[in-house]
Nucleic acid binder design. Structure first.
Length: 343
DNA sequence: AACTCGGGGCC
DNA sequence: GGCCCAGAGTT
């Protein structure tokens, strides 16, 4: 490992992409970028990152923000507990650290939403501390170079590589080494049999390349099959306003949704449960939405009613919903179709 | 150690 | 249709 680092650092300094969060050492901005980038691609993050910082430029602003606002700023990015945890952490930071992220790995690690990867990333990038940041990119690259057949999904594997790296890291190089391995993984050592070995600076040192077994690495365990849920989704309107409901804990926690229910009962029965007895039903397009572990098959309906009283909904004008209420992507297509019909 | 938690872009 | 992504929290 150690003899590869000078090459890595040189390659990284020459080839790193110009990303918004690489133009700052502000710990808050580094932190935000790392949270947004969890399981999320760089291109998806960019516009969210800029918008979030414009709205909440400092940790104090995040700590004091309304939950509606932070969810709206995260709308469409997914894994919404990330931003709720981040706000909790911001409040911890205001109370315990005077409003500044602590320059200490264990203290970072103790903050809500900051795990081993993110603590290592912030410690090294923002504070120049000698900690490793082992993400999926790093595991893929190192498993190929060193022909390591450990399952990269296992905690033990991540721990192994974290220690391997920290044996050779100093504060001086930790940031570039961590970002360097990630950059190799993100731009050259790609998953799915499409790595660009032809331009890889580590080709001659790469065990998997030399043995022509790149496609066999990294090793990872089986994944669980996705379950299917059938839903009835209703664009419910009185002709001017639209019904919205706030979700509870679990999937898409605390976000807003169009009224919906299971497919086990009829639509008129469902409407009846909501106190809608005069619903005028027009079918809309059937839609499918795929999450990581669940698939929603949605039977969608446009329903016109006069009875908005005594319903479990918030009745809002469409413009207000668009501007203020976080509606997850699963409902976006049916929302757009319903809104079009409304006009 | 296994599950839950989003969304999109690529093949 | 399956892939995976700058993972963390809960059980």
């Amino acid at each position: 490992m150690k003899q590869l680092l000078p090459l890595l650092i040189e390659w990284y300094r020459e080839n790193k992409r110009d990303l918004p969060w690489r133009r700052t050492k502000d710990p808050y901005r580094i932190w935000l970028s790392e949270i947004m980038l969890q399981q999320t691609r760089v291109e998806a993050v960019k516009p969210y990152y800029e918008r979030f910082l414009a709205a909440l430029p400092a940790i104090k602003d995040l700590a004091e923000a309304e939950e509606e606002l932070i969810l709206k700023l995260w709308e469409g990015l997914g894994y919404y507990s990330r931003v709720r945890n981040m706000q909790t952490a911001a409040q911890q930071i205001m109370k315990e650290y005077g409003g500044a992220l602590p320059a200490d790995y264990e203290k970072l690690r103790s903050l809500k939403g900051i795990g081993t990867y993110t603590a290592g990333a912030i410690a090294s990038i923002a504070f120049g501390l000698p900690h490793a940041a082992v993400d999926g990119n790093v595991l893929r690259v190192l498993s190929r170079i060193f022909l390591d057949a450990q399952d990269i999904g296992l905690e033990a594997t991540k721990k192994y590589w974290k220690e391997e790296l920290e044996n050779v890291l100093t504060g001086e190089i930790a940031s570039d080494v961590n970002e360097g391995w990630m950059e190799v993984g993100a731009t050259i050592c790609l998953p799915n049999g499409e790595p660009k070995c032809g331009i890889c600076p580590f080709r001659e040192y790469c065990g998997a390349y030399r043995q022509s077994v790149i496609h066999l690495y990294p090793v990872k365990g089986e994944k669980k099959a996705r379950t299917v849920e059938r839903l009835q989704v209703v664009f419910l309107t009185d002709g001017k306003r639209v019904a919205l409901r706030k979700r509870g804990p679990g999937l898409l926690a605390n976000l807003w949704e169009l009224p919906n229910g299971g497919a086990e009962i009829s639509l008129p029965s469902l409407l009846h449960l909501w106190g809608i007895l005069d619903g005028e039903i027009t079918p809309m397009r059937h839609r499918k939405h795929i999450f990581t572990h669940v698939q929603w098959d949605m039977d969608c309906y446009f329903v016109q009613t006069k009875s908005t009283e005594d319903t479990p909904f918030l009745w809002l004008e469409p413009d207000r919903i668009t501007e203020e209420y976080a509606l997850p992507s699963a409902f976006r297509a049916v929302w757009a179709e319903g809104r079009k019909k409304l006009q």
